[in-house]
Write a protein that binds this DNA or RNA. Structure first.
Lengths: 210, 210, 210, 210
DNA sequence: TATGAATGAGAGTTCATTCAT
DNA sequence: GATGAATGAACTCTCATTCAT
């Protein structure tokens, strides 16, 4: 009674401020990029003083690192939530493509891709970021592999090499997502979606009508 | 008179200093990224004073913008040089894939992909960069389309939709190049090459043996 | 009742926390110097929160000032305890020299000299510190004068001017203590002791064999 | 003609700005102490921007270190200049005592002692400072030894142990200088001078009338 | 009494840019 | 054309101090 909240979100309550700051950081990062994100911007967005940001994260680097982790968590949490209820592998694969090519349809995804692009750019130069990126991308490929295996088990997909397909599909999705994120006039979101599904259908041998 | 050069490279001579600085800038950018590139670094690499860099480019932004243009020019000049001598479309397509997936085999390509990744990351936030990026990527897709059309004309490739194939292939190549550039242990350069060729073969209907 | 103490140290009990904090402060000061002593350091050493330190002392300045007072009190309490049992003035003088030149032989003296050095340095610039310092040094000279007078009354020392001797001896002891505190390789603790005693013997006309 | 200055001060001209800043730093240090010396203060005193201070010294630490070196150089240069013309050892010793006990008589000495006190206080905690301090004090004792040896050679002084005398005298002078620098009402500058000379006379066996 | 959270006021340092020479 | 010197405007991080609980 005294601790008003119903069990379930205690962790979130404990670091209420921390996650508030992290969300603010993520917001700033996705709008201005890592290198143009100032501690003062994050503080302003969170409605607190810059000193308080330091109080919770000690250094700017730590703040950005944790914000990146949060971005990944949010992405996967949300992705899983959207995927888990779907029974057929084909529909799940379609949802996966939708997730990457039509992120604007889902406000929860925010400007995730802006962050991933920045992450890649940083990873080229900074080993620590590279490690995070690698783990993230492997997780992503594993998600794809898992769907592919399910589809093969249920005879929805042909028995092609799972690793090859994962590499191919993740590459296509990354490449298309970039164009969509950068609002390329040639590669619109829906065009990207269609192209990706067409290619997936061709690779996995299921039929697909745009 | 002594330094007057025989027609052929007059522009290059006029901007001797300019292009020297631009090459230095490109070098620094590819090693440390746009956001960590200082005017002083470029000057140091070029063996001149920071003030002279400003003298030629007025602002850092202008310097980086022109360096980006130079990167594109070098990429395409080199690409064309490698492509133009090749007669068959299939072999030209293979060379295209080689160009993106095995850049380390060609010292002239340098760390180009590090620059493209950075370019994408910047383009998310800055409209001017976005414009440059768009033009660049469209140019890239047109290069692909051109090869595909040639292959179709010579009956090497099937008569599929050229635009679809260009979008698909450029997306796959971008996606794979990212992993290669970031030295992902799962997607090695040669694996990327094989996967890309396999996919191209499937899309265009030519036969390919890894 | 349980914590009620038998008369004798009531003040000390009332300010239990205060003196705990002061001792912590002294510890930090002697290891890092006044200017590098943070309120947070003192709190950490005392095992409490910085806010509680402020609660008891209001400002950092006040804390440092009181810590300085404590340092003096401890020094004199300890000095007196060591001196009072000694009957002859000569032996008492020797103990005085031992106190300043061989502080490391007595763990109770701690890093006192580190604090005095810092006190002098501060006193140059801050009048309030200067006042404390002056009182302290005068107290020190009076201690010397007192021993000298005793020795003259008991015919151990010659009847030289007491003030001159106090100034001379306190200066020599200060000067030597500095070198010892700074671990000068030329002026070791024992060398300092010998030199001081030799000089005292010469000034006061008692015989001394090293 | 073009380089207007007559040979002799070229080095000083080369680092005009550097030494101007160092002098400003020394000025600030002697008035406020090392720990309260801000880069901005030094810049203000020198009439330039803080950034220019960094331009010449890179870090604050380097600035303070070089300022300390300058203080020593100035002290010794000036001391030597005052000593070298004096023929008799006794008179030279007297000048030495005057140098430490009556620094206010000579504007060139400035607030040197404020700096030495601070130096000692820092040396307790910082090894690098300790090294500088040790060298400085040894130099000082060697100056004394040299005068003593001269006096013994000329039969002005008795043949006592030179090292002992140097340690004793330097200690007394340090101790007295502290009191003078701190303007102790009991130990006035002239009193300090008399006491020091009396003690020197006693140690070295020359006659001295205050 | 005791603390965690919060902040304002700096402090050192960086860096693009300017300017006199 | 070329530079060293100079600066203003940030930006990160520190720390004494305050306040609600």
């Amino acid at each position: 009674m005294t601790t008003s909240d119903p069990a379930g979100a205690p962790a979130d309550d404990l670091d209420d401020r921390r996650s508030q700051i992290l969300r603010a950081a993520l917001d700033v990062i996705s709008h201005r990029g890592y290198s143009d994100t100032r501690v003062a911007d994050v503080a302003l967005r969170a409605g607190i003083s810059p000193a308080l940001v330091m109080y919770y994260f000690q250094t700017k680097d730590r703040l950005l690192a944790e914000a990146t982790r949060l971005a990944e968590d949010l992405w996967y949490q949300h992705g899983n939530r959207r995927l888990e209820a779907i029974p057929s592998a084909t529909a799940r694969l379609e949802e996966l493509v939708r997730l990457t090519c039509l992120p604007q349809d889902d406000p929860a995804l925010g400007e995730s891709w802006a962050v991933w692009l920045d992450l890649w750019a940083q990873a080229v130069h900074w080993p620590e970021v590279a490690a995070v990126r690698e783990e993230f991308d492997e997780h992503w490929r594993e998600t794809i592999r898992s769907v592919v295996r399910d589809g093969q088990a249920s005879d929805e997909f042909q028995l092609v090499d799972v690793d090859d397909v994962a590499i191919s599909l993740s590459a296509v999705l990354d490449g298309l997502a970039i164009q969509v994120a950068l609002r390329d006039p040639v590669v619109t979101a829906h065009r990207a979606f269609d192209v990706a599904m067409m290619l997936a259908a061709r690779l996995l041998g299921f039929s697909w009508r745009a």
